[in-house]
Design a protein around this nucleic acid. Structure first.
Lengths: 124, 124, 124, 124
DNA sequence: GTGGTCTAGACCACT
DNA sequence: GTGGTCTAGACCACG
């Protein structure tokens, strides 16, 4: 589990964890039934509070990506993999739409915007 | 001044104000030396706290877009408006880059991403 | 707000809070837009941790019964009142079904079961 | 012994075992002095931990339904089976009372409640 | 060993 | 003032 937390980020740590684990599941780096690190193990490894890890796992469970079994551990939920992908698409589209909207509000022309897009695509 | 605040938005009210006023300046709806509404007037009109308006004006001043003169009011700075435009561009590019990055992380192919882009462009 | 917490109950405190507040909203003792006690105020009053109250409020928000606005407070969500009622009905039916099922498993006849029902109805 | 365990249920496994064995005893599928499967045999069959089975047997013994003889096995107690039945009745009544109480708290009228009862009885 | 809950207090952001 | 997050450590229930 290569998880990275940025303490000074404005994004809450538990949300950083949720995002990264979500990505791993979508990319199938974590297959169905894979066990996530125990709350305590991960909190120790990342040097953060166990409660913070727990909060992240809770969010993942609420999203249906993960199932936790009392006394046994937390596991990647089966199925649902298409659902996750759809969610990812929605997020990306939202970002693009936001960019287009801000460009319009800021007086950036379509041509300039498309030029930016090409630039960004090349750089990433 | 047609400003709108959305209380239930995730975006802080003061940031909503900053964004909208910034846009007005870029679009030259507010020319150099134009006077912004007084803190108290605006807070009354929008039914929000005067402190919130003050925080927005402070942020605009910190960004160099506006100058506050004690006892007189807050005025659009004469400063080079190209700077503002550049800032806008940077924000839009950041959003695009974020979208591309998330798409990569979520296993979305370049083709699918570009298709999304076309879709979003048409809709906006 | 007459809320009661039972520390020695097996039911988690935050869940006790959720149940009681849910009931108040259903019974319209708390109308739409009513403000709930602040996290700190309630935690002080009930002599429990602020985090516990927060967890209850989070659960209520996830259920759509409540909206919390940063820096302002937590408020009863409008609408949704029929939804809540349906949820209550579902819970009651689940309890009844569970009772009938256990009665069957335990070798209790229908006659005896109905007799119990009459008894319970009278007592409550 | 046809015992079923549901790992993903909210009910603890040992409690599931207790419930099912209790039911068997009440229904006289397990007569007095009948021998229960050994802890190791049952744990192997159900693919659960031996400690979990032990915990279930301990609970049954504490309830007086079963007697464990060191080195020989676990046996259904001769004790009065009416006691078990009474316990079952108490549980069912508790569920019914809880349903009535929640109905009251949720603003469900007696008429609606009795309608639900008829419905549930028909379905089970 | 695991997760589930709770505490008491801290610091930050928003109004 | 409000909520949002985080900590370090405790106790309990389950396996």
């Amino acid at each position: 589990m290569k998880l990275i937390v940025n303490n000074s980020s404005m994004v809450p740590i538990y949300e950083q964890l949720v995002d990264q684990i979500k990505t791993m599941i979508v990319r199938k780096e974590l297959g169905p039934d894979a066990m996530l690190p125990s709350v305590r193990a991960l909190s120790g490894e990342l040097k953060i509070s166990a409660l913070t890890v727990k909060k992240a796992y809770d969010a993942l469970e609420a999203a249906g990506l993960v199932v936790t079994v009392h006394g046994k551990g937390t596991f990647v939920a089966m199925a649902n993999q298409n659902l996750i992908r759809e969610e990812q698409c929605r997020e990306v589209e939202a970002l693009l739409a936001q960019a287009v909207q801000r460009a319009g509000a800021g007086g950036i022309t379509r041509e300039e915007l498309e030029e930016m897009w090409r630039l960004v695509l090349e750089e990433n």
